[in-house]
Design a protein around this nucleic acid. Structure first.
Lengths: 234, 234
DNA sequence: CGGGCCCTTGACGTTAGTCAAAGAGCGTGG
DNA sequence: CCACGCTCTTTGACTAACGTCAAGGGCCCG
């Protein structure tokens, strides 16, 4: 059985740091169980702890003034959020809510701050993790700007595949309403976009998705949307 | 006359660090003039220097395999990019190109790495700057997901305003092709979306934009797009 | 003066959101 | 065990937003 600290040590924030230096921090952290649908913190709240997901799923999102919610990310085991809490006086940039029964470890910002001020290696690890998160956001932005909904779904599916070639079957990690929001669309559009992937060998049955050929799906992603219908004709 | 190092010290990466510790780094950096349209580096290149913009404008963008370009940001004086170069073996996440005659200071990654390893305060400053950049990306993502083109333009215009209330006139900082790309749309759509702002007191004449009332524009931004036409009717 | 780019406009097609309806699956309480 | 209400999901019809293609005017620069 994997211990709580073992899970937390695998987080991208801590992975590169010698375990002995991180363990005391983790042992001071508090473990929290949160039920599905419950809120962890709201955007704009004073940031007082860094959270690591031990089990379950956490949705990060922002509310627009008119009520729409924009999902920024969905995190699972080994992933962390609220890193900016280490700096005194910061606020959380997003709201966080549990999507399924979740176990977290919360590390008090002041504890972390004390250690980071002294431990250059830990500070660099945080920096490196931050760059990685930034790159992920840049990717997301690129996709949102230059791909159609169907192409973003295809990317999402490929991200779930283990294989590089051939076919595979994946299980959707959360419900379609959330997948739609994550990919920046409405559930109705998601449903229709899934249908468009059918000619490219994608079959959806409830929560299972069968992909006939990973390479074919990759080709679909790289198609210029404006050429797409031309390809179908040819 | 402001010196080169004075400008560079104002960058968000360095602002919070005592100048004496940063100055040696800056003095080792090389100053480079780049003409309009020239490329600084490409996405995927080995990252070997952090760049600070002294004058001019730099466009950060990514190319999709099918040839479309997604603009990630446009940087001006006091702004920096390529921060992830400090870690050995990294590659640039975006391409960078000059949008106007530009002066840069390039800091060699190895120099920076040497200093960062020893100087915890500088490392924390980088971390803080990285969080800020991340927040900007999150904002961008939120807007792209939940606002219409016209609303994003309105946000962009408000960002150029100095005033909080009343009216003002702003000058567009770069051409409309680039503004369109930055906001995730085509020039034609930008042109039409500008027109939609007319009822809200926005008049465009070449590169000048007159805003009758900043507060009115803010109200427009907060409107639910789906209620927008209802508001016009009522 | 000619060529190229920027910008706008019109006509048209595609993509995605809205509204409404209905079926499937699931847990609760009777 | 079944009925009920709930949420998730899909579908259809319609509308709005945006991209595409084409054309034309203005401007700068050689």
């Amino acid at each position: 059985m994997e211990s709580v600290t073992d899970i937390a040590l695998e987080t991208s924030v801590f992975r590169s740091v010698p375990a002995d230096r991180v363990r005391p921090l983790l042992e001071k952290g508090s473990i929290r169980k949160v039920r599905r649908g419950a809120s962890i913190h709201m955007q704009g709240d004073a940031a007082n702890s860094l959270c690591i997901v031990l089990d379950g799923l956490v949705k990060l999102y922002r509310m627009s003034p008119c009520g729409g919610e924009a999902v920024i990310g969905v995190l699972g085991r080994h992933e962390s959020f609220g890193e900016n809490a280490i700096f005194p006086g910061e606020v959380y940039p997003t709201s966080a809510e549990c999507v399924s029964e979740t176990r977290l470890i919360q590390i008090d910002a002041r504890d972390l701050w004390q250690v980071v001020r002294q431990d250059n290696e830990l500070c660099r690890a945080l920096l490196s993790a931050s760059f990685k998160a930034q790159n992920a956001l840049v990717l997301e932005l690129e996709r949102l700007k230059s791909q159609t909904g169907a192409q973003r779904i295809a990317e999402f599916l490929l991200g779930l595949c283990q294989t590089e070639v051939g076919g595979c079957t994946v299980v959707l990690p959360y419900d379609k309403v959330l997948i739609a929001a994550r990919l920046g669309m409405k559930p109705e559009s998601l449903s229709r976009s899934f249908r468009r992937l059918a000619p490219y060998g994608v079959r959806v049955a409830k929560t299972r998705v069968a992909i006939a050929s990973v390479t074919r799906l990759k080709e679909f992603i790289d198609e210029d949307p404006s050429c797409a219908w031309g390809a179908k004709v040819g």
